[in-house]
Amino acid sequence: MTEPAFLVLTALVDEPRHGYGIAQEVERISGGRVQLKIGTLYGVLDRLTADAFVEPDREEVWQGRLRRYYRLTDEGARALEEEAVRLADNARRAVERLRLRQAEGLT
Protein backbone atom coordinates (compact mmCIF):
# COMPACT_ATOMS: atom_id res chain seq x y z
CA MET A 1 0.00 0.00 0.00
CA THR A 2 1.40 3.40 -0.99
CA GLU A 3 1.72 6.20 1.53
CA PRO A 4 -0.99 8.38 -0.13
CA ALA A 5 -3.39 5.40 -0.12
CA PHE A 6 -2.58 4.71 3.54
CA LEU A 7 -3.17 8.34 4.47
CA VAL A 8 -6.42 8.58 2.47
CA LEU A 9 -7.77 5.49 4.25
CA THR A 10 -6.65 6.95 7.59
CA ALA A 11 -8.42 10.23 6.75
CA LEU A 12 -11.67 8.33 6.25
CA VAL A 13 -11.54 6.33 9.49
CA ASP A 14 -13.62 8.73 11.62
CA GLU A 15 -16.14 9.99 9.08
CA PRO A 16 -16.97 10.15 5.36
CA ARG A 17 -15.24 13.06 3.64
CA HIS A 18 -15.40 14.77 0.25
CA GLY A 19 -12.39 15.26 -2.06
CA TYR A 20 -11.04 18.49 -0.64
CA GLY A 21 -11.86 17.32 2.91
CA ILE A 22 -9.72 14.23 2.33
CA ALA A 23 -6.83 16.32 0.96
CA GLN A 24 -7.03 18.63 4.00
CA GLU A 25 -7.16 15.73 6.46
CA VAL A 26 -4.22 13.97 4.79
CA GLU A 27 -2.19 17.18 5.09
CA ARG A 28 -3.14 17.45 8.77
CA ILE A 29 -2.41 13.79 9.58
CA SER A 30 0.99 13.96 7.88
CA GLY A 31 1.90 17.19 9.68
CA GLY A 32 1.84 19.13 6.39
CA ARG A 33 4.35 16.77 4.75
CA VAL A 34 1.92 15.24 2.22
CA GLN A 35 -0.12 17.69 0.16
CA LEU A 36 -2.18 15.65 -2.29
CA LYS A 37 -2.81 17.26 -5.66
CA ILE A 38 -6.33 16.70 -6.96
CA GLY A 39 -5.18 14.47 -9.86
CA THR A 40 -3.20 12.33 -7.43
CA LEU A 41 -6.06 12.20 -4.91
CA TYR A 42 -8.56 10.96 -7.50
CA GLY A 43 -6.04 8.43 -8.83
CA VAL A 44 -5.73 7.05 -5.30
CA LEU A 45 -9.52 7.13 -4.78
CA ASP A 46 -10.03 5.23 -8.06
CA ARG A 47 -7.69 2.46 -6.93
CA LEU A 48 -9.16 2.28 -3.43
CA THR A 49 -12.68 2.17 -4.90
CA ALA A 50 -11.63 -0.59 -7.34
CA ASP A 51 -10.21 -2.57 -4.38
CA ALA A 52 -13.52 -1.96 -2.50
CA PHE A 53 -11.61 -0.22 0.32
CA VAL A 54 -13.69 2.96 -0.04
CA GLU A 55 -17.09 3.65 -1.57
CA PRO A 56 -19.19 6.71 -2.35
CA ASP A 57 -21.28 7.75 0.66
CA ARG A 58 -23.47 10.64 -0.47
CA GLU A 59 -23.53 13.75 -2.61
CA GLU A 60 -24.14 17.29 -1.46
CA VAL A 61 -24.31 20.64 -3.19
CA TRP A 62 -22.27 23.24 -1.33
CA GLN A 63 -22.18 26.83 -2.61
CA GLY A 64 -23.49 25.58 -5.95
CA ARG A 65 -20.77 22.93 -6.26
CA LEU A 66 -20.91 19.15 -6.08
CA ARG A 67 -19.33 17.45 -3.11
CA ARG A 68 -19.14 13.68 -3.30
CA TYR A 69 -18.37 12.03 0.02
CA TYR A 70 -16.43 8.78 0.37
CA ARG A 71 -16.50 6.36 3.29
CA LEU A 72 -14.21 3.59 4.45
CA THR A 73 -15.60 0.07 3.91
CA ASP A 74 -15.12 -2.79 6.38
CA GLU A 75 -12.66 -4.32 3.93
CA GLY A 76 -10.79 -1.00 3.75
CA ALA A 77 -10.65 -0.80 7.54
CA ARG A 78 -9.22 -4.33 7.69
CA ALA A 79 -6.61 -3.52 5.03
CA LEU A 80 -5.66 -0.31 6.84
CA GLU A 81 -5.32 -2.12 10.15
CA GLU A 82 -3.13 -4.83 8.62
CA GLU A 83 -0.91 -2.20 7.00
CA ALA A 84 -0.76 -0.12 10.21
CA VAL A 85 0.25 -3.21 12.23
CA ARG A 86 2.89 -4.10 9.64
CA LEU A 87 4.33 -0.56 9.63
CA ALA A 88 4.24 -0.35 13.44
CA ASP A 89 5.99 -3.71 13.64
CA ASN A 90 8.72 -2.52 11.25
CA ALA A 91 9.09 0.74 13.19
CA ARG A 92 9.34 -1.16 16.50
CA ARG A 93 12.09 -3.42 15.10
CA ALA A 94 13.99 -0.41 13.78
CA VAL A 95 13.78 1.34 17.16
CA GLU A 96 14.91 -1.84 19.00
CA ARG A 97 17.95 -2.18 16.75
CA LEU A 98 18.83 1.50 17.07
CA ARG A 99 18.68 1.22 20.86
CA LEU A 100 20.91 -1.85 20.72
CA ARG A 101 23.36 0.06 18.55
CA GLN A 102 23.37 2.95 21.04
CA ALA A 103 23.83 0.51 23.94
CA GLU A 104 26.85 -1.02 22.21
CA GLY A 105 28.31 2.44 21.85
CA LEU A 106 28.35 2.38 18.06
CA THR A 107 27.02 5.93 17.70
Binding site: H18, G19, Y20, A23, I38, Y42, R65, L66, R67
Partner: peptide, 13 residues
Protein backbone atom coordinates in the same frame (compact mmCIF):
# COMPACT_ATOMS: atom_id res chain seq x y z
CA UNK B 1 -18.24 11.05 -13.88
CA UNK B 2 -15.66 13.09 -11.98
CA UNK B 3 -15.27 16.59 -13.46
CA UNK B 4 -17.67 18.44 -11.16
CA UNK B 5 -16.29 17.03 -7.92
CA UNK B 6 -12.70 17.50 -9.09
CA UNK B 7 -13.40 21.14 -9.97
CA UNK B 8 -15.14 21.59 -6.63
CA UNK B 9 -12.22 20.05 -4.69
CA UNK B 10 -9.70 22.09 -6.65
CA UNK B 11 -11.51 25.41 -6.20
CA UNK B 12 -12.06 24.83 -2.47
CA UNK B 13 -8.29 24.44 -2.15
Amino acid sequence: EREEEMVSAFLEG
